[in-house]
């Protein structure tokens, strides 16, 4: 177990190296896919903190992703294109929302948690739909320019933008990895395993869940920031439950509680989505089939199962 853990970051390092070299080999289309994989991988990792590590299946994670994206889009609409300002607000507004919503949703657990998060998520989705003056309603907000970092390199160039995303992706991986292996992170896993025991041992389990919820919301917001820069467009669909469901699927397919597994899950779904074309009727059916296959044959997801095969099950911190 410990051997695997010391090797895991080495694997992570090799993967990052590959991610660094890949753009030099890929077609523009491939590079665009890879950029999306990083963005959704980051989004899925943030959800894994809740699903895999804290044991909370949140059904409105798209809320934080979407609010981060809308923040950048609204700022751009006001003519505020400074990257650092957008970044800070694109993270802190989702964090503030998580501070508030966390107080409400963390009163319940299990299936009730899933349902109440879904309800709040749809409320915010409806709000984005209705509040035309700010959000553009169902037309969404278009024409969001790529970020200006004040550096002598244009982010309109796909490779430059990719590297910008990669830097933040790697940084986020590092922080999440450190967090999960900190004392607090281990306590959060304890909550997943047995909340009553954690309380009996003197841990403020509510506070731990709240912290995890806020951190997850912040990183989802970060993913949303890059998503809207990448896409140049945001609509309420990005706040909808379908988006939340999709990122849940990424976590499950990749392997909940493996942190990097969900990145693999994101990669698989994004590549499939582009093969099948997400705008046909076949897409929801395909997603459903993938989900069923996963539940039946790959309980621990791709990465989780691979780790288990090596007889080094998950959860051994």
């Amino acid at each position: 177990m410990h051997r695997m853990l010391t090797k895991y970051p080495i694997w992570g390092g090799l993967l990052l190296l590959a991610l660094f070299i890949l753009p030099l080999l890929l077609s523009p289309y491939g590079l665009s896919l890879l950029t999306q994989v990083l963005i959704f991988g980051l989004f899925a990792m943030s959800l894994d903190l809740l699903m895999g590590y804290t044991g909370l299946v949140s059904f409105n994670h798209a809320t934080y992703f979407g609010v981060g994206a809308y923040t950048v889009a609204i700022l751009a609409g006001l003519g505020l294109n400074n990257f650092w300002l957008s970044l800070v607000l694109g993270i802190s507004i989702p964090v503030l929302l998580a501070l508030l919503l966390g107080l409400l949703v963390l009163r319940s657990s299990g299936p009730y948690f899933l349902m109440i998060t879904l309800a709040f998520g749809q409320m915010i989705f409806a709000l984005a739909w209705r509040w035309r003056t700010i959000t553009g309603g169902d037309d969404g907000l278009a024409g969001i320019p790529r970020p200006d970092l004040g550096l002598p390199m244009s982010m309109w160039k796909a490779q430059n933008f990719y590297y910008l995303v990669l830097v933040f992706f790697a940084f986020a991986c590092l922080i999440l990895w450190k967090f999960i292996h900190s004392r607090l992170g281990k306590a959060i896993v304890g909550v997943r395993e047995s909340e009553t025991r954690m309380q009996a041992l003197g841990h403020n389990t509510w506070g731990l869940k709240y912290l995890s919820y806020i951190v997850a919301g912040g990183f989802a917001g970060l993913a949303g920031v890059f998503y809207v820069y990448f896409n140049g467009f945001i609509s309420p669909q990005e706040l909808n439950w379908t988006m939340s469901g999709q990122v849940i699927l990424m976590v499950i397919i990749g392997g909940a509680g493996t942190l990097f597994g969900p990145v693999v899950g994101a990669g698989m779904i994004i590549i499939l989505q582009n093969l099948i074309s997400s705008h046909t009727e076949r897409w929801p059916i395909s997603m459903g089939i993938i989900f069923i296959l996963c539940v039946m044959y790959l309980r621990d997801g791709v990465v989780g199962s691979a780790l288990k095969l090596r007889k080094k099950g998950r959860g051994n911190l």
């Binding site: 395993e193 009553t196 009996a200 051994n316």
Partner: peptide, 27 residues
């Protein structure tokens, strides 16, 4: 709340085992 009582030096065991079964003994 229970965790505050625990911090006063109160500890308990459970009639049904209530452990972190997926974690190592050390964890």
């Amino acid at each position: 709340p229970p965790f505050r009582r625990a911090r006063l030096g109160l500890a308990r065991t459970f009639q049904q085992n209530n452990l972190f079964v997926n974690l190592s003994l050390l964890d």
